[in-house]
Write a protein that binds this DNA or RNA. Structure first.
Lengths: 337, 337
DNA sequence: TTGTAGGCGTTATCAT
DNA sequence: ATGATAACGCCTACAA
């Protein structure tokens, strides 16, 4: 590929002048400018960003780490959509690194982006512990921002959601409707989100003096398939219940399908609530209620601030989001709208 | 940040030796190796990939450009999932550039990846014409591979699917079942895929001597919402029909929802078929038939070959995929399985 | 086995 | 207004 030197020779000037023309810094006569542009055309010159970034010590790039266990499903799409949109609105580029499916690999992904000299990094951790994230954030001068985790020491580097409160609200809604036999499908319990949502369920029951029945709790793994299995497990246990709370919408979908499969009518016989990590509305069967958590806002807010900070602004990101309960049918359109 | 020079000083050796230790090329005594590793630990040294890539003239990186109008929805997730998985299996990294929503921006995205010196580029074009893609592929020495387009001059750089044939098969299935009043919801007609699927519909009717009724054709825009609108349009036209073919699954979902909304029973009163760009199964309402196109295979195949080629293999990618008709209920699990 | 030195393609600081 | 020239951090012959 043509380099700057070739352009310079062709235009009969020095590299420095070509650089000036390209960057717009410094004075260059109109005449030489023209010659340079002409030479660029002729040679098909394209700047080498590696060289430029090396020289300038900045890459105009934002790194994003997400585990690929999230790649399926709408949550991730939404995250990426907003991240891409916002970074490019600022004339930057987004680089995605796969966190794959272990803490070690999430660490590597962060390291890669760091080694690539991204100006800042946003991570949605799935396997790295809060403690380690805290350490990582501290031990690097480059800004690292954490989504959906509450850091203890660097809380200003995190954006999180009160999953316990949201879950509690959801369950209390059911209680208010007269339900007392409420089954609960957990998410993966190695994730804080999963633990917090379960804890909100227990809290709600306890507050309303409803005895906890362990046999109404089934462990799921965030996937539709595990929602399906959860229903079978409950039926096999011969439990009676009038409502099921699934720890996310994906599992809720599985639950709905399986109830339908067994000829159980919704919501006449059993009510179902899921947590709306993101709007699944376009794909949903009506008559599922869901707790909507404004993830989109959370993301926008975060990326927006990170970028702001890169331009020299303040760095205060800590935010606390909660959710609202919405009946599924009221959702006219999903992310496509 | 600590550089290689600092490590060298600390270990009492030259940069070259440190480089050898890191790359594993050349002889280094065990003793100095130890000293170097120790120095690396102490200084918290991390290689600067910009510098390394500049020096080696390779980035071990695969660029991917996709329009962000696809970011929502499962198709994109699947694409990204496999792309990420395959590139990292090969020890490479994936860089995603947003094609945004115009030909110009798709061009820019490609250019950016080229300027970043990605080893190869995969693009799923949405706005760039086949002709221009052909030109682009030709005018760059770096490998560029095109998904879902059939290039005329560089067909070995493309992987595509016979959308017309698939569509025709789908419609003929309905005809075989006795349907004659078959409505069709198109995709965006500025995309080849949209045009081809419509053309397959017409071909099927024509082959079976069923007169084409323009009023049974409604134009959609690939989204669930446009599927919803399509149903209303058909009803407003007071058309009679016993089946609806939607040009993709997203629209099919919208169609189903709206039929349901109007109290029309499926499939007793109206049958619905969609095109399974990707497995939406976990979210689907039973009793929708769908044409499954093995996009996943297509993607794997493509990325796999690109990577193979980077390692010095041949470069023969041209492939033609078709689809098979499957009833929705036979799909046990989606991408989560 | 190790060190020296030149190069990768830019930017940026001086002079001129 | 323009040209040398030294970084930027790493790799890689070529010597020693």
């Amino acid at each position: 590929m043509a380099t700057m030197l070739e352009v310079a020779k062709r235009a009969g000037v020095s590299k420095a002048t070509v650089s000036r023309v390209l960057s717009g810094n410094g004075y260059v006569s109109q005449e030489t400018k023209d010659r340079v542009f002409h030479a660029i055309e002729e040679s098909g010159y394209r700047p080498n960003l590696l060289a430029r970034n090396l020289a300038t010590q900045k890459t105009q790039t934002l790194g994003l780490v997400v585990t690929n266990t999230l790649y399926h499903g709408v949550y991730f799409s939404e995250l990426l959509f907003h991240a891409a949109r916002m970074t490019e609105d600022q004339g930057r580029q987004l680089i995605l690194a796969d966190g794959k499916h272990s803490a070690e690999e999430e660490r590597e992904a962060i390291q890669y982006l760091l080694d690539m000299r991204c100006d800042a990094i946003v991570i949605y951790p799935r396997f790295l512990s809060v403690e380690e994230m805290d350490e990582i954030v501290e031990s690097h001068s480059r800004p690292i921002v954490v989504l959906n985790r509450r850091l203890r020491h660097n809380s200003s580097h995190s954006v999180f959601c009160d999953h316990k409160a949201t879950s509690q609200v959801a369950v209390e809604q059911l209680i208010a409707l007269g339900h007392r036999d409420i089954a609960f499908v957990t998410g993966s319990l190695d994730s804080p989100t999963g633990v917090e949502r379960l804890s909100g369920y227990k809290e709600a029951l306890s507050r309303h003096n409803i005895p906890l029945r362990e046999s109404l709790i089934v462990s799921g793994k965030w996937t539709p398939a595990s929602g399906t299995e959860a229903v079978d497990t409950l039926l096999a246990r011969q439990e009676t219940f009038s409502a099921i709370v699934a720890s996310n919408d994906d599992m809720a979908v599985g639950v709905l399908r399986q109830l339908h499969h067994h000829g159980i009518r919704i919501p006449q016989q059993v009510s179902v609530i899921g947590f709306d990590d993101i709007a699944l509305a376009p794909y949903m069967i009506p008559s599922l209620a869901s707790v909507r958590i404004p993830v989109t806002e959370m993301i926008k807010e975060t990326i927006g601030r990170v970028i702001f900070m890169l331009d020299g602004g303040e760095f205060k990101i800590q935010q606390r989001f909660t959710g609202e309960l919405i009946p599924r049918d009221s959702v006219a359109n999903g992310p496509y709208a």
